[in-house]
Design a protein around this nucleic acid. Structure first.
Lengths: 109, 109
DNA sequence: AAAGTTTATCGTAATATTACGATATGGGAA
DNA sequence: TTCCCATATCGTAATATTACGATAAACTTT
């Protein structure tokens, strides 16, 4: 199929899945590393640093923005991207909880 | 295309992408939550708790095992799955580094 | 051995993702 | 306005993913 079943899973589960799916791609990881290093980065710089076409980078940026992992602010005709700490806090917390079993904080599914 | 370019990215980047791609699916998140709660869980129990066919669950388990997020030990004709702390440590560390910009620990791409 | 269990694999159809070039859009600059 | 930027979107072809039923494989029990 290629169609992901979401019925039957909690909102938290599906939301986290969407976010982490966005992270799970080499180009997007590279972008995130860049933004982590640089705090903020113009789209054009990102394009220059990645081995991908401009349109492809733009698409990846859009995907990261869609799940609020990054945010973009346009000044003039350029757009600067930076990490969105809010969402990263959620991700970090989720990973921490999963990887430290004990507290049983999760409702199944 | 649907073909992910990996050429031009560091090994760490592509490896982390593979791992996080495996996490980025509702069914697999649900499985991971289960395992986090229960420390260890028989395949059959997981199948009962998820709204998916047995073959589908088995596929998802295989995918999580492929990237070493979980490990399975078979006793008799049942298989028990549990989280693999090694890999989770790597993931946790990566997320922590990304989400706390400052140290500039990443080589770009 | 035969039958039942449990889990993995295969075959498949439907759908999603990815990368690129081409083009559009939305500014600045001349 | 007209011409250049920078970025986003569209159209596409190639490939990947997902879910399921059917079946296989590996044990256990009878």
């Amino acid at each position: 199929m290629g169609i992901t079943k979401t019925k039957g899973f909690s909102t938290e589960t599906t939301e986290m899945a969407e976010i982490l799916k966005a992270v799970g791609h080499p180009a997007r990881i590279a972008i995130l590393k860049l933004l982590s290093n640089m705090m903020s980065c113009a789209c054009g710089e990102i394009v220059e640093l990645l081995p991908l076409a401009q349109s492809t980078v733009s698409r990846h940026l859009a995907e990261l923005k869609k799940v609020d992992l990054i945010k973009g602010s346009s000044n003039g005709n350029t757009v600067s991207y930076s990490l969105n700490p809010e969402t990263w806090k959620k991700v970090k917390n989720f990973i921490k909880l999963i990887s430290k079993p004990d507290g049983r904080p999760f409702d199944c599914c």
